[in-house]
Design a protein around this nucleic acid. Structure first.
Lengths: 334, 334
DNA sequence: CTGAAAGCGCTTACAG
DNA sequence: CTGAAAGCGCTTACAG
């Protein structure tokens, strides 16, 4: 039971494959194919359930209607939610998404880019890490649309969509200060990516701007691949420091580990001890008391990314690169 | 700057593309290519950064090294975690995953299957819905490996990996009964899929087995696409029924809505009012008090799926279908 | 209005 | 030990 090919359809219709191809690709009018022929072919296609072989089409045209999505980890709710939104929007325009997680490995990220390249994806959406600039530059040389998101690589001339992490973490830190907190800690991750760096900078600048002084010992940098138990242990250590009266977490999973640490210590979030997370998580709202958080507008980010991609895919000439910064919001909860 | 082709490599090496192809595909030994030639070609490939065009390869061989994953919703943590585990394991074997969400739409599920088919994916992992049996049967006729998971379609003769939902929800209900609960409610979703049906059956049978009687008014069936606010409203209604002393939720997102409802009502989970969720969620453990839940062993499910796929992809003949039921565990938390 | 033919970049049966 | 050639299923420039 082999799949039907355009040849079979042409045979049944008593036409050349050229004519059938024109009809399939909506070029019937342009090529002045008669209405009768169009009807006949469409009828045969419908009855036979014929679907064009996309692989052959890709080989011939050089594009695939596939957009490659490269992220850190699909099981992180920030990425899986963005992925879902992007998928939905792309799907409506006839594009499919193929995704893969880098786990913050330069090695794997490079492999993924090559993989996608050899599969001729039409465009790339990448949450990048340092060390893959050259690989991305090759895509750009190839005139493939590339949208970086979440994290930027400023050396590259391409599109970027992201939140103003510095500003957001500045505000979060400031909100602690406004409620009288003096010893504000930061729990962050020790990966060398710009948006993590920015979150740190915002924290530091807010402290300095309010003359609280920056103390390195209040910054806890968690190794990326560390097992969660270890992370919780380190956070508990931090929490036991009686001086600390507020903690900002630089990612949602760190904040989750922080909440687990609190629970294990039987320590409460109250007027003497405040925390703020980064990126929302259902657990934050449900927690008693609810946890404040810095929220990136996922819908807006996804929409912006997909618009940038689609306009670039349909443009005949290269459009100017855009750097779009979308404000993250501090959601204060009680 | 066009990409290199096998022709370019052959030209540089002063060899035919046949020979180059044999070397690329590891058939050099088998074809008795001389070591000197092998070395030379490998050197040229390395220097030039040549990557074979997978599209051309797929067109010629009929397979793609891509596995299609069709799930309900990638943003649901159950699926995104499974997806990540499957991706990891597949990646190590040289397979890529292409995924899409059906949103429980028969229409979309059918489209996705066709899309994957026209892209010549090598195998399918599907969390199916009723109404796509015929489409899956066509894949089976085509001798493509298909693994159903999470939900089964018993009419089909294919592989299935899933948890024993009936047993699990029976046990959960029974655990309520053992702690003296009399009016046990079920919050479920009104989609017609087997594993949701089983969760209902387990609940019902446990009640009947313990002579508590089954009351339809204690079963709340939430429409699938309903906005969450509406769901919360309905659950609040249920919670206000003073008789209800225990609630079993049939999915993790329903339980999350349930926790939000509790919070809005300022109602506590305590010895007089118990709840159990389905599939784990970080919010369950963190909740005060922690929420008990039925947990599917994600790692084991993913591993089983990928093993089934890989053995079938490398087998020369059709292997017998397997129906693998993996026990879900009731995790009781205080 | 419609068709014959080239070619996308591979793999592989066949030949020597 | 190595190569010429067919063919996978399309699209499209060219011809009439």
């Amino acid at each position: 039971m082999k799949a039907l090919s355009i040849k079979d359809i042409a045979l049944k219709a008593n036409l050349s494959i050229t004519t059938v191809s024109f009809i399939i690709n909506g070029k019937a009018k342009e090529k002045a194919i008669s209405d009768a022929v169009i009807k006949k072919v469409q009828q045969i296609i419908k009855e036979s359930g014929y679907k064009p072989n996309q692989i052959a089409r890709s080989l011939r045209t050089g594009n695939s209607n596939i957009i490659g999505l490269i992220i850190e980890d699909i099981s992180n709710s920030f990425f899986s939610k963005i992925a879902r939104l992007i998928e939905d929007k792309a799907y409506k325009k006839g594009y499919k998404i193929i995704y893969s997680s880098t786990e913050n490995s330069v090695e794997k990220a490079k492999e993924l880019i090559n993989m996608f390249k050899s599969r001729k994806v039409d465009a790339y959406i990448i949450s990048p890490i340092k060390g893959i600039q050259e690989d991305i530059q090759l895509l750009l040389n190839d005139h493939k649309p590339v949208i970086l998101f979440d994290r930027n690589l400023p050396e590259l001339n391409t599109n970027y969509v992201g939140a103003n992490h510095l500003e957001a973490s500045y505000q979060a830190t400031e909100s602690f200060i406004h409620t009288g907190k003096k010893n504000i800690a930061l729990v962050t991750i020790n990966i060398d990516v710009e948006q993590i760096e920015e979150r740190f900078e915002g924290y530091k600048r807010a402290l300095l701007a309010h003359n609280l002084g920056f103390k390195e010992e209040l910054v806890l940098r968690i190794p990326f691949h560390q097992p969660e138990e270890e992370t919780i242990k380190e956070i508990k250590q931090l929490f036991k420091n009686k001086e600390v009266d507020a903690v900002l977490f630089a990612t949602n999973y760190l904040a989750i580990s922080g909440l687990k640490a609190l629970k294990q210590l039987n320590k409460m979030v109250d007027e003497n001890f405040a925390i703020i997370g980064y990126d929302d998580h259902e657990a934050f709202e449900l927690h008693t008391p609810s946890i404040s958080t810095i929220q990136q507008p996922l819908e807006e980010i996804a929409e912006t990314i997909i618009q940038l991609i689609l306009t670039r895919l349909s443009a005949k000439t290269k459009l100017p690169d855009e750097q779009i910064i979308i404000p993250a919001k501090l959601i204060l909860r009680k």
